[in-house]
Write a protein that binds this DNA or RNA. Structure first.
Lengths: 345, 345
DNA sequence: AAACCTCATGGAATCGATTACACGACTCCG
DNA sequence: CGGAGTCGTGTAATCGATTCCATGAGGTTT
């Protein structure tokens, strides 16, 4: 592969001049510029990003460490992150932590070794020393979706409290009184918050959230199935199961189906995180939709602000309820019953 | 950030010795080794991968250029690729081409600029000069899922012919005679092959595939919707719609639902590419399942073989039919009716 | 005891870029 | 006409690693 020296030789100038042309530095003669560009063309020269990075100490690369790529929510997040980053001149390296702290650490470590310019993280757990050290050491970092309390890192996330209140109101209106939740890992902020918001919303209607009705999941389908089976085995099973993410809702649906029960007649189901498939499940599933694309873009903007020396800002966007049929028919005309089809293109 | 010089100074040795310890070169005294490791520890030193790559001309990174990350099939492929690569000591940079040739080119270009060790591509189109040049110039490359004919690059893919024959047999047995297909882009091998296999299988039953029954899609949900609407507007609409990928099937389901028609009573639906959600749609969708994880792993192995100087091998694995209810009830007991739930974890 | 290995180590070149600095050729202006 | 400024260019240092080569210490063989 041709290097800058080859180009310099071919054009009959020094490497410095070639470099100047390539980085369009002002003081280069038109003549030299033409000859260099011709040489670049004829040799098919492309600058070596590795060498450039070593010298400039910039890789123009962002790291994105995500909890679980197979979760459509995160897939969409990753997509929007890559898009915005590309628009701003950055590439993205995605690391899939698969909800495993040690994998998360592995990715953070390799990304730092590669000297990425900044890190976007959706932490799987309370935060490894590695990550906290990196943040303290000055690595530009932004938390997205989930975050770690007590660390001075901007957070870009959705606030689901209002939407959860809307959901509980919706369920209450439909006559449901015994509501259960499949929670996410307590080590994640989203895991905690969704339970908290749910409990709070129930409280407003004088309803409690007994321990039996809080199942511990891990944001994976299998845990949704397991927890739901536990609910169904209870002497007094809940009338509604609210899954704290879409994969656990899928698992719950499996478990309910396996018992020969039907949604929403026998039991109602709702989920946090809306995805295109929820429109087509049997029945369509009521969900709380996050502005996923906007979150990804805002996170990148915050990170790039930080990298380029501008003050980064935390961002919190509202989530909203999308009512479908999985909780029963809603006769209140004010409620949004039209399935909201989000683009998958 | 500490460099190898700092470590050398701290340990009281030369940088050469530090490098030897880090790459466990045999001739280093136990004493020096201890001192170096202590210095590494105390400084929190991590080797700069950028500098290392510049010197060794190896990045231990693979590029994966994928047609569409939002398609669950490719998401799963990406995941298995990353897993296998990690096991072999490589990182993966994913580029999402979004079925757009110019984006694909963008990613190939940046990946080559970054001097990745090898490239895994699922080409969006017939192949840009850029990619073909890179292959000819000796960049280790492997095609996965889709490929470009006439290029000397190993191909790892699934062969759906037998499964398509099984599907047509299944449909024929259920009494369907007017079968239509939503094809993928003609520029992709999978787009062409699936139509060909379908036509061939129909031929075996004395059925034809009229032009009216071939809709041109682009592997995106929206095109599935559009094409299906066209089918439904025909004077004699088909009895079955076979979508060449899962997203177009989703679009087809939308279109059918929008007309107030029901699957499978009014029209049957089948898809290429099985995904976990197909078990839960209304009705569950009959699909042709690819051994996605195995494909990803095989592709990485082939690429790494090529990179490390071993002869790479093309791999073709069989796909298989997973019959569900979207084509009607099958009374043949030999047919697999159990929904196959693939793990989403 | 001389010759010869082996081993641990350091010095310095190298990878391919960027960029500070020096320098010569011009132009401009008093 | 001469000093100052501008412009285009080249030389060489630099980034952080790896690795070839030289060197000297110590041990073995004859």
């Amino acid at each position: 592969m041709a290097s800058i020296k080859d180009v310099a030789a071919e054009a009959g100038v020094s490497v410095a001049t070639v470099s100047r042309v390539l980085n369009d530095h002002p003081s280069v003669s038109a003549d030299a510029r033409t000859r260099v560009l011709a040489a670049v063309e004829s040799l098919g020269y492309r600058p070596n990003a590795v060498a450039r990075s070593l010298r400039t100490d910039q890789t123009h690369t962002l790291g994105l460490v995500i909890s679980d790529v197979m979760n459509p929510y995160f897939t969409e997040l990753a997509r929007s992150v890559e898009e915005e980053a590309r628009a701003l001149g950055y590439s993205v390296i995605i690391g899939n932590a698969d909800e495993r702290p040690e994998l998360q650490d592995h990715h953070v470590r390799t990304l730092l070794d590669r000297r990425i310019d900044g890190l976007l993280v959706s932490p799987t757990d309370g935060g490894s020393p590695l990550m906290l050290d990196a943040a303290r050491a000055g690595t530009p970092m932004v938390f997205v979706d989930r975050w770690i309390p007590g660390v001075d890192v901007p957070v870009v996330r959705a606030d689901g409290r209002a939407a959860v209140r809307d959901l509980v109101a919706h369920l209450y209106r439909l006559g449901h009184r015994r509501l259960a939740i499949i929670a996410g890992p307590a080590a994640t902020t989203t895991g905690q918050e969704r339970v908290e918001a749910f409990r709070e919303a129930l409280g407003a209607y004088g309803l409690g959230l007994p321990d039996d009705y809080i199942g511990q999941g891990d944001f994976q389908a299998e845990s949704g199935r397991r927890v739901t089976e536990g609910f169904l085995d209870l002497p007094e099973p809940p009338e509604v199961v609210f899954a704290a993410d879409n994969l656990m809702a899928l698992g719950a649906l499996d478990a309910i189906r396996a018992r020969g029960l039907s949604v929403p007649c026998d039991i109602a189901l709702a989920a946090f995180d809306d995805i295109p498939w929820f429109v087509h499940t049997d029945p369509p599933i009521t969900a709380i939709a996050q502005p996923t694309g906007e979150l990804g873009r805002a996170a990148v903007r915050a990170l790039v602000d930080r990298i380029e020396g501008r003050p980064p800002q935390s961002v919190t966007l509202p989530a909203r309820l999308v009512a479908r049929r999985s909780c029963g028919e809603d006769r209140d005309p004010g409620q949004n019953q039209t399935p909201v089809q989000r683009s998958t293109s």
